[in-house]
Design a protein around this nucleic acid. Structure first.
Lengths: 330, 330
DNA sequence: CGCGGGGGAGACACATGTCAGGACCGCCAG
DNA sequence: CTGGCGGTCCTGACATGTGTCTCCCCCGCG
């Protein structure tokens, strides 16, 4: 039913010119008489002509497409990051495609294969370290930026991360300022946050009070770890959780044990999830400037597309502490 | 730095055959001797050959790409829907591109233009009604499915929605079963949910107890509306909120007024957000079978791509009530 | 009349799929 | 034994829609 879309030749015929001229007009060449230019533009408008990006990409050798591969679309961090990324890429005339690997390495490879076949100009890996053979090969052929993963040692691959250590320090400083000493930490997958906690505690000469409990990054994990911490004697007066979901588990555990927040226990999360902003939760949390990270990634990528073969660069973005009602004086 | 990717010709030379034969092998033609087939495959492997989807699309006249335009990536509904969509499309050999309009009609048009220039085979509009000229034109040229918007009257455009009315009925039935009579509703943007509430209340002969308060779809809006409802005399014993975010506002208002949930007040949300599953919130909520909707959309779209020109179809997906701790007996 | 330059057209290239046709082989009938 | 026929494998040519490059034409000016 859908009639075939008009091509540049149809426009040329209708305007009574050669197709080359149509191309010139559409690309904004200055060496075209005003008379013909108008004729071409009008013909294009009348036919509802829309340039075929496929053909253009083929001849240009580039697609102006950037593939963003996300481990998990549900994670609000990625969603906001993508907003920033798209915004900046758009300014550079690049379009963003999103692929979703759902944490499955097989899907990762597959999505990247798709991007490579589409000949994207650049690749952004979100929460995905290029370890598989396919991914490594991809980074060799295509300008790539990795986000949220440290310790990538690949030539010509840029990295954008949140400065976890600084974030942890912000949290601990805040708690110390409120008079807390027995500050515990629940460790998650990001080990640098734990290191930041350790460093900050020592800096405040609170080394004797260091308490760390590991947990998997879920509410249930946070609850179990918190229960373990809070039944110690003496119990901590504050808990810095690896992230907001874990912190939510801490809140549950506290409620179960009859501890009031923040009177009896202060809680700090990480990520500043939408959830933590809810007044029903109101969790003090470290915010990773997500949009900023997105923009950084876009800048690095555009630059690298323009000039591949640069050395790898690392961009650490400064987080910020958002204080809410889950923290208070001892 | 990145050396040019090998083409089908390079493979042909290396294997000592014509490029047509390489194409045949790669497309899995049966009329190729095993000997040559192996030679071609090996040459392709050695060169790291990857077919160029751009060139292929140009000659095939189709891209095997589907563009999904999302109003808001942060909305977890869309994220999960996309999972289901991608999963099913993948089974049909289609790849999914995601565009993000961030609720801005200008971005919508622009993203759709991009999709059209890329010559996507199909379009999925999430929470976006095709009202602008660009979008309407797009639906005329490209198979399209609209999700989450009713009342689209366009030829050849399929619609997938949650059965809001049924969802509301499930919520009310549940509350009635628990002995509630004074059940209030906070109305959001989806008017069909409100209608469902009204119908269900009347069905239970509870028309005299109908109470509706409008609110904008935010936590603050929910809080205000709930405060208004809960300070009435007699006050409602249960509130059915338009969605989970609004319900969260209800919980806040209840806490402010010293009402315990569920002892003094039962609350039901809609959408079964991740938040509502958190044990710290534990909100009874209506779940919109998001993955199922994604799969439905994929099925409709694949079908329409195979045979455009069918009439418009409407698919209403059945929601389900998830009972948690925010509802209890009167 | 010659030269320069502006404006336009035609040819080619991009990487691939397909289709018509050709080479070769084996078999059978004359 | 040979010619014809059918089948298998493979090749070359063409097509897809666009950008660019070279070349040509014509006009105006010196």
């Amino acid at each position: 039913m859908p009639r075939p879309r008009p091509t540049i030749r149809n426009v040329a015929e209708r305007a009574g010119v050669s197709k080359s001229l149509v191309s010139l007009v559409l690309r904004g060449s200055p060496h075209v008489s005003e008379h013909r230019r108008q004729a071409v533009l009008q013909a294009a408008r009348e036919l509802g002509y829309r340039p075929n990006a496929v053909a253009r990409s083929l001849v240009e050798g580039r697609t102006h497409l950037v593939g963003a591969l996300v481990a998990d679309l549900h994670n609000p961090f990625y969603a906001e990051f993508l907003d920033g990324l798209q915004e900046s890429l758009h300014g550079d005339g690049l379009r963003m495609l999103i692929g979703n690997s759902q944490w499955d390495p097989a899907f990762e490879d597959e999505a990247v294969e798709a991007f490579l076949e589409l000949r994207v100009d650049g690749l952004v890996l979100l929460g995905i370290a290029p370890t598989s053979e396919t991914l490594i090969e991809a980074t060799a052929y295509t300008p790539t930026v990795v986000v949220g993963e440290r310790d990538i040692e690949l030539d010509g691959v840029d990295i954008v991360v949140d400065d976890d250590q600084l974030g942890a320090r912000l949290a601990i400083d805040h708690l110390v300022e409120l008079g807390h000493k027995r500050i515990a930490h629940i460790e998650g997958p990001r080990s640098s946050r734990c290191e930041g906690y350790l460093v900050a505690m020592r800096r405040h000469s609170l080394a004797p009070y260091i308490m760390v409990e590991a947990a998997d990054a879920s509410e249930e994990g946070g609850r179990e770890a918190a229960t373990a911490l809070l039944t110690r004697d003496p119990r901590p007066t504050a808990i810095f959780a690896a992230n907001d979901v874990v912190a939510l588990g801490v809140l549950s555990a506290a409620a179960d044990l009859g501890l009031r927040v923040p009177e009896d226990l202060s809680v700090v999360g990480y990520d500043n999830t939408q959830m933590s902003a809810s007044s029903h939760v109101s969790l003090t949390s470290v915010d990773q400037a997500r949009r900023t990270m997105g923009r950084s990634a876009a800048a690095l990528l555009s630059d690298r597309i323009g000039d591949p073969g640069k050395g790898a660069r690392l961009r650490e973005v400064r987080p910020e502490l958002i204080v809410r009602r889950s923290t208070g004086r001892v």
